[in-house]
Computed example of a mutant assay.
Amino acid sequence: MTGRRSAVAGAVLLVLLALPAFAGPLVSPWGWDETDFAAFRQGPSGDHWLGTTQSGRDVLALTLRGARNSLSVGLCAAVLSTGIAAVAGTAAGFLGGRADRMLMLGADLLLVLPSFLVVTVLASRLTGGWPVLVPVLAAFMWMVTARAVRAATLSLREREHVLAARFLGLGAPRVVARHVLPHLASLLVVDASLNVGVAIAAESGLSYLGFGVRPPDVSLGAVIADGQGGATALPWAFGSAAGTLVLIVVAVNLLGDGLRDLLDPEARR
């Protein structure tokens, strides 16, 4: 019951945050890239509901744009990393032998690397907006899940229905798709939901440092970095993006924890 309440609360909060983020032009009367030359450093008002920045840009529009980009990166990176983990883990566990050793060696090598430092160096050399961050982040998020998937696959491949399918001559891809992956669905769903928060936090950190989403576009990390200098004088410019980022990560974690309690038998004990 606790897991269900957590999942519902997280899902509702996430929807309430995502809807205005992706419908930004319909919610805010100002565009995120527009400048009001008559309203520099203005507090919340009827024209600018969350005030303006030092450069006269609407804080609400910037926050919604930043939330949309951060959510897009988080969702895409989580799905991609979980997909990589599913393929690598099932291949290692089902095939065994050299494939298993090579895949797990690659996972171990990536685990010992200082991932945030490597991602920062790679991201600093990339251009093209937030889509280029997705594969970079996903490349360092799949290893632990792949090991869990491998362990589960090692157990599943000895089950009677899997052995029967192999004896009937079905190829490895079809056996995995039909008889292994369905049993791993709960693990992969929970992993993807939790990875959204990890990816959003990583992307926001990169953008805060100037290595993520680049100007003229913005993400929540970039908006926070822009507003931190005037956090005491212009709290609306800093607090809106920071508060939104915290709420998004809390919502994603609530959803992930709730799904884990609902779908993982071990977590319910």
Rank of each mutant, 00 (worst) to 15 (best):
R166T: 14
F211R: 01
V132A: 05
G129I: 09
D257V: 09
S193R: 00
T232G: 04
W142G: 05
D33V: 05
V218S: 02
A192M: 14
F37Q: 09
L262A: 11
A11N: 10
A237E: 05
L194I: 06
S155T: 13
L103T: 03
A7Y: 01
G258C: 09
F211I: 07
G256A: 12
V246Y: 13
G169F: 09
L156T: 03
A192H: 04
L26M: 14
A139R: 06
V112A: 14
E34F: 03
L19D: 13
S70Y: 04
W142L: 12
I200W: 02
W130H: 05
L14I: 08
E266N: 12
R101T: 11
A177W: 15
A23I: 09
V175L: 04
G197T: 10
T2L: 15
L103M: 10
S204L: 02
A225M: 08
D36P: 06
G239E: 09
P131L: 13
V112I: 15
V27D: 05
A23E: 07
L234T: 08
F238D: 00
A233D: 13
R41F: 12
Y208T: 03
A201P: 03
E203N: 13
W236K: 02
V12T: 13
S155A: 14
G229K: 08
R68T: 03
G129T: 10
A39I: 07
G229R: 12
T82D: 04
G169T: 08
G24D: 01
L170Q: 14
R166D: 05
D226Q: 13
R174S: 15
V249R: 05
R101W: 09
I200G: 01
L13P: 02
A148S: 15
G169L: 10
L122P: 05
A139E: 09
L137Y: 10
L187G: 00
A148Y: 15
G46M: 09
A237F: 01
G230D: 11
A85V: 02
A202W: 01
M1D: 12
A146M: 06
Q54C: 07
F238H: 10
R147W: 04
A152E: 15
E158W: 06
G66F: 00
V149P: 00
L64I: 08
V213R: 01
A91Q: 05
A92E: 02
R268V: 07
L254H: 02
P173T: 08
G74Y: 04
L50G: 02
G243C: 10
L234M: 15
S193K: 01
L220F: 04
W49S: 03
L111G: 03
P135C: 04
L17R: 06
A172R: 09
T244K: 03
A39V: 08
A138L: 12
D36Q: 07
D58F: 02
S6F: 14
L170E: 11
L181F: 07
V15I: 15
A251M: 11
D58R: 04
A199F: 04
G256H: 06
G230C: 02
A61L: 01
V252E: 01
A107G: 13
L156H: 04
L209E: 08
D264K: 03
N69I: 06
